[in-house]
């Protein structure tokens, strides 16, 4: 499966995750929160994690952005749920794009944002844990 969708259109999987996004919402008292992007560029992803024994036990997201931004956020949450932090950190923008059966070339930056959101949320968790030790 090519990483880039040759048709420059969204795959059915992207449309499915856009129209029916998984894990939308907020986790109160989240263990880690990551927010990446900015309104000027038209893309913001916010990811909330619940972590127990080094495993991601719950994840929710909120996204301001285009179809690809919503779909990559939704897919990213599915990919990391139940994973250890090490496994989650291995998820790259390519993993997310492949899981969605590819993205149009000009939308690849949205998958970068998903990767960064995961890393930023885990980073936040690690910082909070260090300071509470």
């Amino acid at each position: 499966m090519s990483l880039l969708n040759k048709m420059e259109e969204y795959s059915q999987k992207v449309m499915d995750h856009f129209m029916n996004p998984r894990n939308v919402g907020v986790i109160e008292n989240a263990d880690g929160i990551g927010e990446v992007g900015n309104p000027v560029c038209g893309d913001i992803m916010k990811m909330y994690l619940k972590i127990k024994d080094n495993v991601i036990t719950d994840v929710k997201f909120q996204t301001f952005g285009c179809g690809a931004a919503v779909a990559t956020s939704s897919m990213a949450t599915e990919l990391i749920l139940g994973k250890t932090l090490e496994e989650a950190l291995e998820i790259s923008n390519k993993t997310v794009a492949e899981a969605l059966n590819g993205l149009p070339p000009i939308k690849m930056h949205c998958s970068n944002l998903a990767e960064q959101a995961i890393k930023s949320a885990i980073d936040d968790y690690k910082k909070k844990n260090e300071s509470s030790k």
Binding site: V26, I44, K46, Q62, T63
Partner: peptide
């Protein structure tokens, strides 16, 4: 909007 962190 329900999905948007800006609205939240």
């Amino acid at each position: 909007r329900a999905m948007s962190p800006l609205y939240e």
